[in-house]
Amino acid sequence: MRIESFLLIDRIAEIDLSAKTIRAEATIPTQSTIFDGHFPGFPLMPGVLLIESMAQTSGWLVIAATQFTRMPFFAAVNEAKLRSFVLPGASLALSAKLVHEGSGYAVTSAEIRAQGKLICSAELRFRLMPFPSPEFRASMEKVAAEIAFPVEAAPHG
């Protein structure tokens, strides 16, 4: 996880398009300026970043489901629950399911577990739009390669 670059997923473990699910992994860094303020002497992964990491996990699933034709932009979060403190160095197992793919929007349910224990969950909504520019899409393809976005779900043409 590269918090300062806002890249909150280390690796996509699996995308199952028939089940409309994704699994991903991330490790919270042991050192980050984030922890200077959150909190001094008691470092905790901010809950908003856990929600963002669920959004990024969901986003890659949506990109796979739409075959890299749409960019999901985070639009709403419902029923977010932050169940446990997450400390520096924690290994996270992230997962999401595509609940509904509408026209121009998508809905996912996502969760994060640490050592098998559910630590947060939410229902997330996204606006789906064409990639704003070829450069934008190329930058997403570059990140996709870095996090092991599965070849069978990769863009064609």
């Binding site: 639009a75 709403a76 509904h100 509408g102 026209s103 121009g104 929007y105 809905v107 909504r125 606006r127």
Partner: peptide
């Protein structure tokens, strides 16, 4: 978007 989601679900369609 929320309304479209609810309509899609209620009528089994994709607006």
């Amino acid at each position: 978007l929320d309304i479209a989601f609810a309509i899609d679900k209620a009528f089994g369609i994709k607006v």
